[in-house]
């Protein structure tokens, strides 16, 4: 027992060292945050924008199918589902385009996040009720084999995207945005 005791300070030292190193890293991140954050924000805008434009674009060719995939969730009257199916793809494209140009980034990111939360709720309720549908996120949709449902993956992907929208809501100032151009040089305070 006594002999092993001698090893303890050594262990402490090494943990202290890693703590110190992570502290260093954190300081490093903080120091460069004003530089990195706007670029990370631009990255988030591009990812979210491309995902939404793609998702919308793949649905516009067959809006009847889009309506059917909305109705597959069984959450609203059929006529309303058809309406949502027709409108949603274009809203997705518009939001995607607004994110990419960077107009009202905070507001648009907020709306985008809200839509994702609706999607997540829709998928989760379908899962909980034992429906076997494809989310129809990128066209397609409707019923699939029970073995072919991918609810967990779909929800995980949407949560990941929601976190990007949250990042933009928290830090809406990004590089290459229309917002920055409109604000002009007075932005620097």
């Amino acid at each position: 027992m006594d002999s092993t005791n001698s090893g303890e300070p050594l262990l402490d030292e090494s943990t202290a060292e890693t703590a110190d190193r992570s502290h260093h890293l954190w300081r490093y991140v903080r120091r460069y945050w004003p530089v990195t954050q706007p670029w990370l924000g631009t990255g988030a805008r591009v990812i979210l924008g491309v995902v939404f434009i793609t998702a919308g674009w793949l649905k516009v060719g067959d809006l009847a199918e889009s309506g059917r995939s909305v109705n597959a969730y069984e959450v609203m009257p059929i006529e309303l589902g058809r309406f949502v199916g027709a409108v949603l793809p274009f809203i997705e494209i518009a939001i995607g385009a607004l994110l990419i140009i960077g107009l009202s980034t905070r507001l648009v990111a907020f709306l985008n996040g809200g839509i994702y939360l609706i999607f997540i709720t829709g998928i989760a309720q379908a899962w909980a009720r034992g429906l076997t549908i494809d989310c129809g996120c990128f066209g397609g949709g409707g019923q699939v084999d029970a073995a072919d449902t991918r609810y967990a993956t779909e929800i995980a992907r949407d949560i990941l995207l929601v976190s990007l929208t949250a990042f933009l809501v928290m830090f809406p100032h990004t590089k290459y945005s229309l917002d920055a151009r409109l604000a002009g040089p007075e932005e620097i305070e």
Partner: peptide
């Protein structure tokens, strides 16, 4: 500027929705 930008966003979304309804009727 921010207010106008927000209004522009809502206008764009409204137009996008209207386009959806229109396109749907042409597809039928």
């Amino acid at each position: 500027t921010q207010l106008w930008a927000a209004l522009a966003v809502f206008a764009v979304l409204l137009v996008a929705g209207a386009v959806g309804v229109l396109v749907r009727s042409t597809q039928q």
